[in-house]
Nucleic acid binder design. Structure first.
Lengths: 148, 148
DNA sequence: GATAGACCTTCCCATCATGGGAAGGTCAAG
DNA sequence: CTTGACCTTCCCATGATGGGAAGGTCTATC
């Protein structure tokens, strides 16, 4: 199997397969005589594992650990569960930050008549809200999440 | 006021103030004889506006539009509200994606005894879950959101 | 005045996961 | 033997942010 077939079979793009190889998440693929990467069923299995973990929001670093645990027949399930729980906690934090933002925005938007008149409580809030404390517990400060 | 004071007064770091100037989100600051950027109260006001919008998760592009509307005395509040509502919708999509992930993860984790035994339904799922359809309606596929 | 230290400047690099695209090699079908 | 689909490597871009180096400026203290 060439990389294109492997990509289709696993749901991981060719680009990402090469990238994962480059950063050491997966072992270097075997090569054909012409230096084409070749993949066996076991490799596809690994790529699907990665795809699944990625879909669940795990970082490459976490996937490295999970793959290592997967390949370790004697691993403790507690180790895996700990990573999962930590990740859940992180996702919950992100969800809370988003919920805080949408709550504020919904409030502001509901007070904005949203017609041709220039009067707008949303802009008024942006212009006059006092500067937030620099490091709130659950920070509402964060970059644009690429959850698109 | 120098950039450091402006940063403290606005809650936007010096680095980001320079960056916002560079990408044209804010006008180039006036300069002292020694080429130091100087800031007036009106500039701080603008920076706080930006800080507030950023805290509510707006992208730089959206902030550009919001700033333009803010400076346009005759703008229609409907234009502002539309941006806010679109942003709310996007945040809701992200929240839904996160909720889907946590639901799955919580389910898997609850079935994992999490002790010294190697048997682990989390890894079993990762290894055997069928590849997802490539483009689900509310995609669970996304990069790591930097909502830290 | 001189010097120390806090500030400022520009410039480059890193993040994280992902894709785009160029230049060139390979393979299979017609 | 050509065409087109594939593969290779290499470089660049994203978005918002920070780190840090090399060098200039300002201010307070001796």
């Amino acid at each position: 199997m060439n990389i294109g077939q492997a990509a289709k079979a696993s749901g991981v793009s060719s680009k990402m397969i090469r990238y994962y190889e480059q950063i050491g998440l997966i072992a270097p693929a075997h090569r054909s005589e012409a230096q084409y990467r070749t993949y066996e069923d076991a490799d596809i299995h690994t790529l699907r594992f990665i795809r699944r973990a990625r879909d669940l929001g795990f970082s490459v670093e976490q996937m490295k650990t999970l793959l290592a645990l997967w390949h370790d027949r004697g691993r403790a399930s507690g180790d895996v569960k700990a990573i999962a729980l930590e990740h859940i906690a992180e996702l919950d934090r992100k969800a809370a930050a988003i919920a805080a933002m949408t709550a504020t925005l919904r409030h502001l938007a509901s007070n904005c008549h949203g017609d041709d008149r220039p009067d707008c409580p949303i802009l008024a809030d942006f212009a006059d809200a006092p500067p937030e404390a620099d490091l709130p517990e659950v920070s509402a400060r964060f970059g644009r999440a690429n959850l698109g």
